[in-house]
Amino acid sequence: MTIKLYYEDPYIQTFSAKVIKQEQDYVVLSETAFYPTGGGQPHDTGTLNNISVTNIETIEGEIRHYLATNLPSDVGYVEGAIDWKRRFDHMQQHSGQHILSAAFDNLFGLKTVSFHLGKDSSTIDIDTSEVSGEQLQQVEDLANQIILENRTIETRWVTEEDLKDYKLRKATKVKEDIRLVLIPDFDDNACGGTHPRYTGQVGLIKILQTEKQKRMIRVEFVCGNRVISHLHRKQSIVSNLIQSLSSPEEKLEDAVKALLDNGKSFDKQMAYLKETLLQYEAKELIQNKQGRNIASTFQDRTIQELQKLAKLVTSESEESICILISENEDLLQLVAAKGKAVEQSMKQLMESILPLINGKGGGNETIAQGGGEKILSSEQLLEKALTNIHSL
């Protein structure tokens, strides 16, 4: 059985070990300082004999080290090195999770159901359907008070019988070799993860946001150095907004709200102007119609605009057939519509046109639409469409 040095001292950064098993994609060592994925905490990374360690997993009682390239077959011993920056970050986040979960439990009896330590932030799922902003603030304040007090974080190996002497925040299913992580007078928890020796080393805890997850509340948070990283990123965003909006920080919210309101007003005005323009275009098309057919080509018009324009035309000119085609990059899009006094089927007309451009479409007897490849020019396709009208 591999000796789990990461249990004994999470501050070990280098170590020597004997290779006791080497397979095609992993090795097993006599002892290791690498932490394998488990308990919501990702695996460590680092090197063995300067070869990158890409993954660590516990499988069938073995701690398997997966490497970027294989070790030479004759290697008997290896020198291991932990990526300390990643390890300490995980120590901060995991211990911060213990403190945060204990604060939810101690203050409001809210239990943590699950924990995920992510690359940029971490989350816990709380067994409740609702949590208030005031509760979140109280939890965050208590968590940071525990950090400020720099309490010891103790680890202790106990038996199942010993558990009666502790007030575990969450029951453990482990029956032997039980490892407890203890913050005196605050939190007793069974855990195999890596943790610093003092709460002060967690640095700081900041709750970022919450969201509902089925019948639970997911709490996103950051600890330690990640708080500084988030602050730097957000400060950069705020500084850019101050410059872009020419507004002091305390008035940014009002400036953004005014900008959004202006944007909504602008969108309404644009929609009105587009609708007015379509009405003028419809009148112009009707005035320039040849016989009962109204046809035209466009550049970069959406299928929705063509549909609206065709409907406006045929509502005013009930005896007409309207065919509109737009060239959009390498595509041709077209709409065919008819007025109430016309008998021909626009669906049938569209089905006769689309094969000419390897197109697809749909519609009904009154209006149909489709699109396809620009095999023909828009003018050539329009001419084909007008010819097909007479064959229906």
Rank of each mutant, 00 (worst) to 15 (best):
V222Y: 03
I375C: 14
Q348W: 01
T32H: 04
E57N: 08
M216I: 07
H43R: 01
E365R: 07
R179D: 03
S296N: 13
Q41K: 05
A271K: 10
G193L: 05
M350E: 00
N364A: 12
D125M: 06
F186A: 10
N189G: 06
V202N: 00
D141R: 11
Y272R: 07
A190Y: 05
V342T: 08
E211F: 10
Q97E: 10
P42F: 00
H90F: 10
L142W: 05
M346L: 12
Y77K: 15
E305L: 05
V158G: 03
E211Q: 14
L334F: 02
D105N: 10
L182S: 01
G96V: 05
T14D: 03
G363K: 00
T123F: 04
T69M: 01
E327A: 09
G80D: 10
Q235L: 13
S129R: 07
I20P: 01
I147R: 00
I99F: 00
M91G: 06
I3G: 01
K214F: 00
V342S: 09
G362E: 06
P355E: 15
K175E: 15
E161K: 11
R151I: 13
K311D: 14
Q41F: 00
S132T: 15
Q97W: 00
K214V: 07
N293E: 04
L382R: 01
A271S: 12
D165H: 12
C223G: 03
I99V: 14
V158Y: 02
E373M: 11
T387Q: 11
Q369R: 13
A310E: 05
I3C: 01
N189D: 11
D188I: 09
G133Y: 08
K4Q: 14
S236R: 13
D83R: 03
K206F: 04
L110H: 03
L382V: 14
Q369T: 12
S378P: 08
E62Q: 12
I228H: 08
D9M: 05
V202A: 01
S101N: 09
R226G: 05
